[in-house]
């Protein structure tokens, strides 16, 4: 007999062990939303009864953890068919597969993420540095604990924003979970929960690492884009504007016969850049999910 929602959620989690994190989070937040609302509803209609009194009947209607877990597992197994009904698998020619990446929104999204990460990485790092040092300095004073807690809370807020950015540009699912699982917590308990949650510390680390990563992402992506575009535009640059492609031989012009080759190489490099961006996006998405989302 389950006496409180927390126990239910824990049992549900056990039943879903080994499933995708996103699925587990979906199932847990669905159950939490339903059970909490149902208990509130029942208590309004039957005042004087306790949570535990009404919960039994509610779980009876909602389904035991094993039943609910089975429903999610079943849905997940049918999921791929539902999601991609109209995309037949066909073997593409490698050339069109290779250049097809240019019309792939996901690749451009990942590319945009790489370019933006210099900015976001610097902001995150700056915030951690500033907030961290203010918190550290104020810890010797009485106001230290609230200041440090506010700082850590802001880290969770930024982690949520970054999660949104990752989801929008990289396409990785980043389920948003309420920060405090138990409703009506006191301030002290909220601070304790914040400190005990590994996601708080992992988010902090993520933000620090995002600075060097941001630099690498930005210079690699922007550099490759610059090279590709100047290669592509080399016939126009050299023949119309008389500007040599000063890449390998000082200010020498490329022989006219070689210009189409250089231009084609530019397209090749652009596609390569996008393939790289797509791959980085995938890996970074996994990293972000591991660091920013509660298991």
């Amino acid at each position: 007999m389950i006496r409180d929602i927390r126990t239910y959620l824990e049992e549900l989690k056990v039943e879903l062990k080994g499933m995708d994190i996103a699925l587990v989070q979906d199932a847990l937040s669905d159950a939490e939303e339903f059970l909490t609302t149902a208990v509130q509803d029942a208590l309004e209609n039957q005042p004087g009864r306790s949570d535990a009194d009404v919960l039994g009947a509610i779980i009876d209607r909602y389904g035991a953890p094993a039943e609910v877990a089975a429903a999610y597992k079943e849905m997940e197994s049918r999921f791929p068919r539902l999601r991609r009904p109209s995309r037949p698998l066909k073997r593409e020619k490698w050339l069109s597969a290779y250049f097809g990446v240019m019309s792939d929104l996901k690749a451009w999204g990942a590319f945009l993420y790489m370019v933006l990460s210099l900015l976001t990485g610097s902001i995150y790092f700056g915030w951690v540095l500033m907030g961290g040092s203010i918190s550290a300095m104020s810890l010797i004073l009485i106001i230290g604990i609230p200041v440090a807690s506010l700082f850590l809370l802001s880290i969770r807020g930024i982690a949520l924003l970054e999660g949104g950015l990752v989801e929008a540009l990289l396409g990785t699912r980043m389920p948003r979970k309420p920060l405090f699982v138990t409703p009506n917590l006191g301030w002290i308990d909220k601070i304790k929960a914040l400190l005990a949650d590994s996601v708080t510390w992992k988010s902090l680390l993520y933000m620090i690492v995002q600075l060097p990563l941001g630099y690498i992402y930005f210079f690699v992506s922007a550099g490759l884009l610059l090279f590709s575009l100047s290669f592509i535009a080399s016939p126009v640059l050299e023949l119309v504007f008389h500007k040599p492609l000063e890449l390998w031989r000082g200010d020498a012009f490329t022989p006219v016969w070689a210009l189409p080759v250089v231009s084609a190489a530019g397209f090749f490099l652009l596609a390569l850049t996008l393939h790289l961006a797509k791959w980085v996006g995938k890996v970074h998405g996994r990293w972000a999910k591991y660091m920013l989302v509660r298991k």
């Binding site: 199932a27 669905d30 909602y62 609910v68 999610y72 849905m75 999921f79």
Partner: peptide
Amino acid sequence: LPMMKQGAFYPVLRSLETS
């Protein structure tokens, strides 16, 4: 007519959203 557990509606909602 309790055809199915209420908890089983949620994954269906999720999958309808995904599609």
